[in-house]
């Protein structure tokens, strides 16, 4: 149990980041690329981790992202309030080859503005950009030429078509960059086009979010959990209970019931 006031000596700031977006746009792949620099073609719909953590260094500060995946609960609009709460950042992902996924992303942004912390930093990520840039796009220096062979690897969902084989890659694009950029600017979002497959744009999302997050504010807030400012009874602060980590007993000695 760390006394929060003195516990942040390493200057690492915990940031909760939530992922949102239509099924099969590559939410988990984006995180997997960021956290372990991997890409798994044919990834199963998300199963497994409660949340992943990854550090991100920013000048003298270290941000420790706690990344929450939807665990599929968004599928039938059944995301628990628990998911949004205390999130300081959100990455809303859409698929550049699927126009409807941007519409869905817009509705998630609305939902975030309704449900989440008002200061939340939101980034919009147009994923699977590798599918549309091998020949035509002028911005695609990083893209390896063979990427179109495995064109629809980035999605694990059956029935999701990534375009007809042999078609012009650029014709796969259904969301023009300019259109998404304009929407993001208007809504006050960070904007990136990304490819979890090649890694393009992925790290940028997280570093740009890190720059925009009000770190001082978070530090002050964490410090405050032990004695938040302002209870009207003057002494309340000294009696405020800090949070308890259930896995750490106050008394030494391993607890018996963690069987």
């Amino acid at each position: 149990m760390v006394d929060a006031a003195s516990g942040n000596v390493d200057k690492s700031v915990q940031v909760k980041l939530v992922l949102l977006g239509e099924a099969a746009v590559g939410k988990s792949s984006v995180v997997l690329r960021f956290v372990s620099n991997e890409f798994q073609p044919n990834k199963e719909p998300t199963i497994g981790a409660a949340f992943l953590t990854q550090k991100c260094r920013l000048e003298d500060r270290i941000l420790r992202y706690e990344i929450w995946d939807t665990a599929g609960q968004e599928r039938f609009h059944s995301l628990a309030p628990m998911y949004y709460r205390n999130a300081q950042a959100a990455v809303v992902v859409y698929d550049v080859t699927k126009a409807s996924s941007l519409e869905k992303a817009k509705s998630w942004v609305k939902e975030l503005q309704r449900q989440a912390n008002p200061n939340i930093v939101i980034a919009l990520a147009g994923n699977k950009v590798d599918l549309v840039q091998s020949s035509a796009s002028s911005t695609s220096a990083a893209s390896p030429p063979e990427s179109e062979d495995e064109a629809d690897d980035a999605t694990a969902t059956p029935g999701e078509t990534a375009g007809s084989p042999g078609g012009e890659p650029d014709s796969l694009r259904q969301v023009p960059r300019e259109e998404a950029q304009a929407y993001a600017t208007e809504a006050g979002l960070l904007f990136f086009e990304t490819s979890a497959k090649t890694g393009e744009g992925i790290v940028d999302i997280f570093t740009e979010i890190a720059k925009k997050i009000p770190i001082e504010h978070i530090l002050a807030a964490t410090r405050g959990t032990a004695g938040r400012p302002g209870a009207s009874g003057g002494r309340a602060e000294s009696t405020r209970q800090p949070g308890v980590n259930l896995e750490e007993d106050a008394t030494k000695g391993k607890d018996a019931c963690n069987c």
Binding site: D69, G72, R75
Partner: peptide
């Protein structure tokens, strides 16, 4: 419920 979802549980509310 989230723990269940994380292990593959499918959640359907409001129906």
């Amino acid at each position: 419920c989230r723990a269940s979802a994380v292990c593959g549980g499918v959640y359907i509310l409001s129906r």
